[in-house]
């Protein structure tokens, strides 16, 4: 809890992650709105736009996740404390989850307003479930990759290069599961197959991040 509290306090002071992520997402939706010259797009296209935008916006937060620790000695201070390293993984993952949820609180209404003319109220319960599973994947992979790359000189380049291929299945799963929900008319049902795929992928990378984290932060 101490690490999570510190994370959120630093973010509140600096506003380095969440505002940038949200602004990026909203700007992207505005660009799509005018570039496609439509107020409403097909369900498949809409789902793709939503998930790709959320993915790239999340990358901004992922890239910043460990920067203060690496640049200001937070890693060393943490490693000197008699605390299980998993506490840092859990706190960072929770912090990233909070950032991504905050991003979605801004991005999803903007997406609905700009690219889904009718309200998405009818699709919201299902969409929330898909977003939750997608978020867990983004958080597990993002935290692991951020820890892996933060102490490299080319972290701003390496982070996305490593994270994006690993996150492609999350985007595919999220888009396929969301697509029936965003269709015009009565919403389609949730695809159990894609939800299960997302869930398993989340679990797999959650376990990999847990297993690797000690090696990533220690010498």
């Amino acid at each position: 809890m101490a690490v999570l509290r510190k994370e959120l306090l630093v973010e509140l002071r600096t506003l380095e992650s969440v505002p940038g992520m949200a602004l990026f997402a909203v700007t992207t939706f505005v660009v799509f709105h005018f570039a496609l010259n439509r107020s409403s797009v097909d369900a498949d296209l809409a789902a793709g736009i939503l998930w790709v935008t959320l993915l790239f916006a999340s990358m901004l937060g992922i890239n910043r996740l460990f920067v203060a620790d690496a640049d200001q000695g937070g890693f060393d201070a943490f490693l000197l404390a008699p605390v299980d390293r998993t506490a840092m993984l859990a706190a960072k993952a929770l912090a990233l989850l909070i950032y991504v949820v905050a991003l979605e609180l801004v991005a999803v209404p903007a997406f609905a307003l700009l690219l889904l003319e009718p309200s998405i109220g009818h699709a919201l319960p299902g969409l929330l479930a898909v977003l939750a599973l997608g978020d867990l994947g983004i958080v597990a992979i993002g935290t692991m990759v951020a820890a892996l790359t933060v102490r490299t000189r080319a972290r701003d380049l390496l982070g996305p290069l490593l994270a994006l291929p690993l996150l492609v299945p999350v985007v595919i799963g999220g888009a396929r599961a969301s697509s029936p929900l965003l269709a015009l008319g009565p919403p389609g049902g949730l695809s159990a197959r894609w939800l299960l795929t997302l869930g398993l992928y989340d679990l797999l990378f959650g376990l990999i991040a847990y297993a690797l984290f000690d090696f990533l932060v220690e010498d």
Binding site: T14, A68, Q72, G74, D76, A77, L79, L80, A81, P82
Partner: peptide
């Protein structure tokens, strides 16, 4: 760890 105190060149404190 926890029985050692390190004071290095960097303060190991968050500037913000």
């Amino acid at each position: 760890r926890g029985r050692i105190g390190l004071l290095g060149h960097e303060p190991l404190l968050y500037r913000e």
